[in-house]
């Protein structure tokens, strides 16, 4: 793997009131890799994502994208640079139909010029993306109102909205949670395909078994601090990581 650093977080710290959500975390994301981020609930994973994508401003520390400082930029500016994210609590545009949901990212400055200007041009692109991600083209599903879609489709719609941005980095916040094994099985190849196409992916996940099949590297957070970093099999053997995860899926992971 080419060791080109795409995104770098340097000593990021953020606290809410008295609670320290993220403490002095540094990490690097290499171009083309899939990085996993794990940690117990409340360990600051989502806050870290919010820090990178500009939804929350860090108290100290900085975020570099292609060696340029992006700390403190507005979220939409960061998205237009090519860093997109999914939300842990799904946020569809619930009054729009599924494919119309994709019109919003397709209308962003980043994508605007490359899709046509006439009414309907973006619809075709949107339906293509949905088909790619597993919405059956000739079925009624892409035309359904987003608020009536089942969970599996909503999770895919979250990802589709990222893909529509043609991003360089996708950050997935617990995209597997609540899905069945079969549903995950359809999404894994999709993520692998994205990686092959050159997209860099960062995944926050509790489903360790599924995660470890995908990722090249993994970072463990606990109480807002970085506990460990490295190859999944090695990281999970570390005693403090096991302690943080005591009682969870650790033992099942090794098969």
């Amino acid at each position: 793997m080419a060791e080109e650093v795409l995104l770098q977080v340097k000593n990021a710290t953020k606290s809410f009131g008295g609670v320290k959500a993220v403490v002095d975390v540094s990490l690097s994301l290499f171009k083309g890799e899939i990085l996993g981020m794990i940690g117990p609930n409340g360990s600051g994973k989502t806050t870290l994502v919010n820090l990178i994508t500009g939804f929350v401003k860090p108290d100290s520390g900085e975020v570099l994208f292609k060696d340029k400082r992006i700390t403190g930029l507005q979220p939409h500016k960061i998205a237009n640079l090519g860093i997109t994210r999914t939300f842990q609590i799904m946020r569809p545009y619930h009054s729009l139909s599924a494919f119309k949901n994709l019109i919003v990212p397709l209308y962003s400055p980043r994508v605007r010029r490359s899709t046509g200007g006439r009414l309907g041009d973006r619809d075709a692109v949107a339906i293509d993306i949905l088909e790619e991600i597993g919405f059956e083209r000739d079925a009624y599903v892409p035309y359904k109102i987003a608020s009536s879609l089942p969970l599996g489709y909503l999770k895919r719609l979250e990802l589709a909205r990222c893909i529509a941005m043609r991003p360089e980095i996708i950050i997935c916040d617990e995209i597997f949670s609540g899905l069945s094994m079969a549903e995950i099985a359809t999404m894994v190849p999709l993520l692998e395909k994205l990686q092959m196409q050159g997209t860099t992916i960062m995944m926050i996940e509790h489903r360790l078994r599924e995660l470890f099949r995908l990722v090249n590297r993994v970072i463990v957070l606990n109480f807002g601090e970085k506990l460990a970093e490295g190859i999944p099999e090695e990281v999970i053997e570390k005693p403090d990581v096991r302690e943080a995860y005591l009682g969870t899926e650790v033992d099942n992971v090794r098969d």
Binding site: T53, F55, Q74, P75, H76, A79, N80, T84, R85, F87, R91, P92, Y93, H94, S95, L96, V104, P105, S108, P109, R110, V111, R161, A164, M165
Partner: peptide
């Protein structure tokens, strides 16, 4: 519907 998601969509 969802301003956060719109932000994330640039």
């Amino acid at each position: 519907d969802n301003d956060q998601a719109a932000k994330a969509s640039g």
